[in-house]
Simulated assay, not measured.
Amino acid sequence: MSLTRKLSVVAATAVLLGGVAACGSSSSSDGEGSAAGSSVSSSGSELVVYSGRDEDLVDPLIDRIGAGVGVPVEVDYSGNTNAQAAKILEEGDRSPADVFLGQDAGALGALDDAGVLAPLPQDILDRVPEQYRGADGTWVATSARARVLAYNTDDVQTADLPTGIDGILDPRWKGKIGYAPTNASFQAFVTGLRVARGDDGAERWLRAFAANEPVSFEGNGPLISAVDDGQIAAGLTNHYYFYPYVAEKGSAASLALHSFDANDPGSLVNVAGVGVLTSADNQEQAFALVREMLSNSSQQYFADETAEYPVIGGITSKYDLPPLPQGASDLDLGQLASLEQTQAMLTKVGMI
């Protein structure tokens, strides 16, 4: 990659850092990095992970798998996924990070485009289906999630549910749909929409959506609660916010999930994932960490603790997860890397 190209990616991701700062204050149920935590420095005797996933989620897993890495593991939780990716790009070869753990394929793709991620060993790549890893083998998914429409079962009849995202533009949904515009997952959905329909088509949809007066939330956790409470009739979210919420609330919950039709942009399947930096001081130990995150026990952890889909076979969640939707999951997740353009479009239409 040329220096000009790398610098342009650095600048683009720095824009994202400012645009998604609100994500860092989301609750832990949002699966994003918390604002707590401090910068770390690598002495070469420990493995340094920059995590865009929440400390409450990641730390118990690191405690369980750390012994298999060979050196102590230190984790920086000081920003959300996009902020941590931006920090890596800003630090360049001086970054103390060995590993990037992200909530979203777009951030992984941005780092890949910048040339800062190392090719992963073949045994790691073979562990994960091709659609859940970088096209050039520099990152792999650690878990998957599906975009869905959560709806209030007291307010919405199943016969009235839209088959695709164009259906929620109907005036009947005016002021009744929730969304979380600063959340990385919503922005990944918009990026997928841009890939599917082009920038002009995506902007037309966003403007029509905005004209239908959707209700903005700071995160998906509050959005799910608002749907259940009847503040809104439905909300665009990820599937895994629903299952722990309903498990805790039981029959008192007035919630259900609806999946859009296959090939609709609203049925996007996205992933959390991991990559190893080319500048890593402890590259072999970093690869060992990736292997541990793809072990059966770690995949079971993701399936049971956050109701995410495992990315290896043979793992069954304690939650009754339906099969992943087909169609939109065929999108090359590497195409979600154009986050700067998505941020610019959301700003242009007044959503962030």
Results as ranks from 00 to 15, higher is better:
Glu32Trp: 04
Leu289Cys: 00
Gly18Leu: 14
Leu47Ser: 06
Pro310Ser: 02
Ile168Phe: 07
Pro60Lys: 04
Lys6Met: 14
Pro119Phe: 00
Ala67Phe: 02
Val140Gly: 00
Glu90Phe: 09
Thr142Cys: 02
Asp126Ile: 03
Ala12Ser: 15
Phe189Glu: 07
Glu218Trp: 08
Ser38Trp: 03
Arg197Gly: 11
Thr153Arg: 09
Arg94Gly: 13
Phe260Lys: 03
Ser251Cys: 04
Asp330Ile: 02
Glu213Cys: 05
Ser254Thr: 14
Ser329Glu: 04
Tyr77Pro: 04
Val276Gln: 05
Ser25His: 15
Ala150Gly: 10
Ala97Ser: 11
Asp160Gly: 01
Ser298His: 04
Ser42Met: 15
Val73His: 02
Ser2Lys: 11
Thr316Val: 14
Asn152Glu: 09
Tyr179Leu: 11
Gln343Lys: 07
Met345Cys: 08
Asp112Trp: 00
Arg204Cys: 01
Asp104Trp: 05
Gly19Ala: 15
Arg172Trp: 04
Pro121Ala: 07
Glu130Asn: 04
Val48Leu: 12
Pro214Asp: 11
Tyr151Ile: 09
Arg5Thr: 14
Lys176Val: 05
Phe242Cys: 10
Asp112Gln: 07
Ser28Met: 13
Ala286Gln: 13
Glu74Ser: 15
Gly102Thr: 10
Glu292Ile: 00
Arg147Cys: 09
Ile168Tyr: 06
Gly92Ser: 10
Gly109Met: 03
Ala247Thr: 14
Asp112His: 02
Asn212Ser: 13
Val246Ile: 14
Tyr309Asn: 02
Val269His: 08
Ala196Pro: 05
Val271Ile: 06
Val276Glu: 04
Gln103Asp: 10
Gly314Ala: 04
Thr182Met: 01
Tyr151Lys: 14
Arg94Ser: 15
Asp228Lys: 05
Asn270Cys: 05
Glu340Val: 15
Leu289Pro: 00
Ala67Pro: 05
Ala344Pro: 10
Ser2Asn: 12
Ile124Gln: 00
Ala303Val: 00
Ala344Gly: 15
Ser216Gln: 12
Ala36Asn: 13
Ser43Val: 12
Thr342Trp: 01
Asp54Gln: 13
Tyr301His: 11
Glu340Trp: 11
Glu74Ile: 14
Asn80Ile: 07
Pro222Phe: 03
Leu268Gly: 05
Ser317Gln: 12
Ala303Tyr: 02
Leu336Pro: 10
Leu223Thr: 07
Lys318Leu: 11
Glu90His: 08
Val58Ile: 14
Ser34Gln: 13
Met351Ser: 03
Gly334Thr: 11
Arg94Tyr: 08
Asp113Asn: 11
Cys23Tyr: 09
Gln326Lys: 11
Ser95Asn: 05
Ala252Gln: 10
Arg5Gly: 09
Tyr245Cys: 07
Ala135His: 08
Lys348Trp: 01
Ser329Leu: 02
Asp59Gly: 10
Tyr240Phe: 15
Leu16Ile: 08
Gln103Phe: 12
Gly273Asp: 03
Pro171Gln: 12
Asp264Asn: 08
Val128Cys: 01
Pro325His: 08
Tyr179Glu: 08
Pro129His: 02
